[in-house]
Design a protein around this nucleic acid. Structure first.
Length: 417
DNA sequence: CTTCCACAGGAACCAGCGGACC
DNA sequence: GGTCCGCTGGTTCCTGTGGAAG
């Protein structure tokens, strides 16, 4: 069979086997359902807080916090969409802008998105931050409206860049003559407040809404709701759903993770042509999600980070794990660079790369003091070595390195004995 | 008690890029 | 066309550190 036959077989079987999903979109993170189970209280609170804008008055700044997958974003989007509907109905001059700060990445891009929302076009680079902000203010003040800026995952931006952006935004009303602006900050990090300037904090958290993690039974309700919409009748029963909820609750009550599990499990079932979703599908989905996350992270690593990780891998694989410290990893990394024909980065930079690998969860590090023998960092792989091997084997530049053992490694081995 | 190792990690700075402004 | 700007991805220089060895 040639490859085009294979593909058309795959496509046709997908078209034939739609007996699992009725609508898989409802299991995606960005789907905002018509009802938010166990978030009625928060939705009501948020609604009360933003309601004054319908009368043309500025509402309080709001600070929303809770861990990932606790429904903050969904609740906020839900409230804003209802607010916009009402505003249209009553002809209230309300504008809202929803920005994900982590996606935007920099203050500049956050400001430029805010500018877009008030109908001002700014180039994607080239202007001074102050200039972009001035244009935003002018654009905002050119008509009379109440503007609500929602900054989702604002903690990510502040930790990286400081709170200049928040400071400017919380003070924006002082310079507006016709319009009013309110700020909603959404944070995944409960300790985020500690990073903030007290002036920003007091101004931003005029009102606060806390989202607690869901427990297993609440997750179950959410999943049941969505499963009814997502799957055909009798595809999924309570058992697998309960398992999904339990697994996600064990993490930290993350609804996003629970929905992912259910969606991937559904896809697995669909692919094998099953008519019912079983607990085994959920278990497999759990493994699949983890594997995909890791493989994806590995593939997207810059080349130098890959070499660093590869050094960690080689050291962990060898018998000399106690030697897996920054200095040795750096030496090994330098040798790999030489073999690849590229010049190595400095140790300071590599130390930074190791920290980045730690942050994305590919390695595990621990600063250790060895007295006379200095202070260093022990680095272990926190993922299955096989995944590293498999992913790097298909990388042209790295696969060549897999075939021969670096000299430095044999030196370490003799050193250890 | 002092010394000293082998780094950690902060701060300042730099180069190159794409782009706006005058 | 020169100048300014922000961003990325580095480098250089530096101070700090906990505990084994002397």
């Amino acid at each position: 069979m040639n490859s085009s036959d294979v593909l058309s077989g795959v496509f046709e079987s997908i078209l034939r086997t739609n007996h699992v999903f009725r609508n898989r979109e409802v299991l995606r993170h960005d789907y905002v359902p018509e009802t938010l189970p166990h978030r009625e209280e928060q939705v009501r609170l948020l609604g009360e807080m933003v309601a004054p804008v319908l009368k043309g008055e500025r509402c309080s700044n709001i600070f929303v916090y809770g861990k990932t997958g606790t429904g903050k974003t969904a609740a906020m989007k839900y409230v804003l969409s209802k607010l916009s509907e009402k505003a249209q109905e009553f002809n209230a001059p309300v504008k809202v802008c929803f920005v994900n700060c982590r996606m935007a990445g920099t203050e500049y891009r956050v400001f430029s998105l805010l500018c877009d929302a008030v109908g001002v076009h700014v180039p994607f680079t080239g202007l001074a931050l102050g200039e972009v902000f001035d244009r935003f203010k002018r654009g905002l003040d050119s008509h009379r409206h109440v503007f609500i800026a929602v900054l989702d995952e604002v903690d990510a931006l502040v930790k990286q860049r400081g709170d200049v952006l928040l400071y400017e935004l919380t003070r924006v009303n002082e310079t507006l003559s016709r319009s009013g602006a309110a700020l909603v900050g959404i944070s995944n990090d409960l300790r985020f407040k500690e990073f903030l300037d007290p002036r920003v904090l007091s101004s931003l958290s005029e009102e606060e809404v806390v989202f607690k993690p869901y427990d297993a039974s609440e997750l179950e309700d959410i999943l049941l709701d969505r499963a009814k919409m997502a799957f055909h009748e009798n595809v999924v029963s309570e058992g697998p759903i309960r398992l999904c909820a339990a697994l996600a609750a064990a993490e930290h009550g993350d609804a996003r993770r629970a929905l992912d599990l259910l969606r991937v499990a559904g896809e697995l079932a669909e692919r094998e042509g099953a008519f019912k979703l079983g607990e085994l599908h959920i278990r497999h989905a759990e493994k699949r999600i983890e594997h995909d996350r890791v493989a994806e992270a590995l593939r997207n690593l810059p080349f130098h980070s890959k070499l660093v990780l590869f050094s960690v891998y080689l050291l962990c694989r060898s018998q000399v794990q106690q030697l897996s410290v920054t200095g040795n990893i750096y030496e090994l990394y330098c040798e790999l660079c030489a073999q690849s024909g590229i010049s190595p980065l400095t140790q300071r930079r590599v130390s930074g790369l190791i920290n980045e690998l730690d942050v994305i969860g590919l390695v595990n590090t621990q600063v250790v003091n060895m007295g006379r023998y200095g202070r260093t960092k022990k680095i272990r792989l926190s993922i299955a070595p096989k995944v590293v091997m498999d992913t790097f084997a298909v990388d042209n530049r790295l696969s060549r390195l897999l075939t021969h053992s670096p000299k430095q490694l044999t030196d370490f081995s003799t050193l250890a004995h």
